[in-house]
Each structure stands twice: as C-alpha cells, then as structure tokens.
Amino acid sequence: MELIQQIVDGLGRGSIYALLALGIAVIFGVMHMVNFAHGELITVSAYTSYWLLTSGFDWWYVALAIIVVAAISSVVIEFVAFRWVRGAPDFTMLMTSFGVHFLVQALFVMYVSANFRQFPRPDWIFNTWKIGAINLEIYDLAVIATTLITLLGTYCLLQHTMFGISLRAAAEDFDAAHLMGIRSNRVIRGAFFLSGLLAGVAAVFWLMRSGQAGPVAGLNPMLKGVLAALIGGLGSLSGAVLGGFALGLVEVLLIARLPTEVVGLTDGIVFVLIALLFVFRPQGLITVHHVERV
C-alpha cells in the first residue's frame, strides 16, 4: 500500500522533471546545446506568480499566465542570446547558456531582491484521496494527469504536423532539413516556444508546491531537467520523458527507504546511480542517431 503511494508520489515528481527534460531535449535536438538557462523560465514564472497572486488574482489565471510568460520568455531569450551562437562550437553554446543563467539571476538580484518571497499556494494541493488504505495526494494526480495530456498533445504535434516533422528533421540532420526548405529561424524559434510551453506547465505545478519566488528559484528544477535529459540520452525526446519519470521515482523511493540520518544524501546517491548508469550505458537510456552539426 505504501509502495503504491510512493509510486504515485514519484510519478508526480517525475512528471515535472519529464516536462522540463523534454524541453531541454527539444532544444538540444535542433541546436546541440544543453540549455542551462532553462530554469530561468521557472524563475520568471515564479515572479509572475508572486506579482499576480499578491495582486489578488486567482490561481487559475495565474497558471495560464505562467504558461504564456514562460513560452514568451523562452522565445525572447533565444532571440536575444542564443540566436547569435547558432552552429557555434558546443563549448561556446554551453558558455552562452551558463551566461544567460547567471545574467537573469543577477538581474533579479539587482532589480528585485536577493531574498525569497512567499506567495499563497492553492489550498487543494494538500487534499488527499482515500481509496481503502491508500492515501493519494490530489496534487500528484493532477500533475500526472496534466502531464500525460501535455505529452500526448506534444506527441501529436511532433508526429502529425508539418511543424513537428520539420522539427524532428532538423534535429536529425540540420543541413539536410535546411536543404528541404525548412527555415532555421522558424524551426529553432518554434523549438524554444514549445520548450517554453512545457516549462510553463512544469512551472505551474512546481510553484504551486514551493510557494516562493527568488533569483535562484529555477536552479533546482533546471538541474533535475538536465539530469533527466542526460539519463534519457540527450536529444532523445522519449528518453527525456522516461528519464524524468525514472528520476522522480528513484528520488522518492530512496527518500522513503533511507534512514532519516542520511536522507540528506539522496541527491548524492542519485548522482552516483546516474554515474553508474553511464558506466554501463554511456549513451543514456535511449540511443539516438543524428548527424553532427557543422
């Protein structure tokens, strides 16, 4: 019984990781860049929530606003920063994404505040649903359901629309896609928009639970997203989703089983497990074949 609760809990956590990892994998696919600035979308969303909630808006509107703001911010960051390093050496792109990460953080410290600010969480997230001896959190069920719907929508978009086909083509072989008439601007901006939307959905649930905004609010979710994408085999979209759920499950199961005095080591143990995974499967869970970018 406890195990079922833990699995639901883990899948809830994993859902958020999966959405973040998918966004990171989408961008990696078209640009070959690990976007360490992905968490900044959560930071921006967190401040949006803080301002709107403290101005008296209802969480439903705030959730919608978060998704819109995250998607737009993602496109803006691409336009301002990443556009200039397209096709640059991997290291240049890595440094740029770190640069954006620290720059956005610094901007919030300088012009807003270095401190965390609390905002009200919706009260239903603490409700539980009893089925016999099982006690499920409504929050977890809501995250899982929303994530599944979002993933299904994303899947249909990628499989059945020309935009989706273009995006996948560019991820597999950018030059060949370019030769087919796919516009790099459009496909890269589209990738950032999609990635931002996914981050927005993740942000809604992450923030409902954390209830706070701060300059480093995005750091933890970014790390989890990058890790999950790595676990899945960077660039594989299904791998990223799988990696997210796996990471969430492992974390929850570990926390539940570790003796209380070493629970603080959970993250460390997770890293060791990931290192072990890479010893045995350097390509991550799912192997993708794509042509090197020039």
């Binding site: 083509a169 597999e172 060949a176 896609a177 030769l179 087919m180 008439g181 074949h289 042509v291």
Partner: peptide, 26 residues
Amino acid sequence: LSLVPEHRRIFGNFTVRENLLVGGVT
C-alpha cells in the same frame, strides 16, 4: 533549385512517407 546531397542524407529515424513529406515542406 533542389540538391540530392552526397551520401543521400535521408532521415533514417523517419518513415519513407515522412521523408517525402519533408521534401514537400514548402
């Protein structure tokens, strides 16, 4: 002006149909 590139460069993860559809993206 359309190029059939050296080594073909077809999209191996795509179905044949999807490859043709990409060709007609414009």
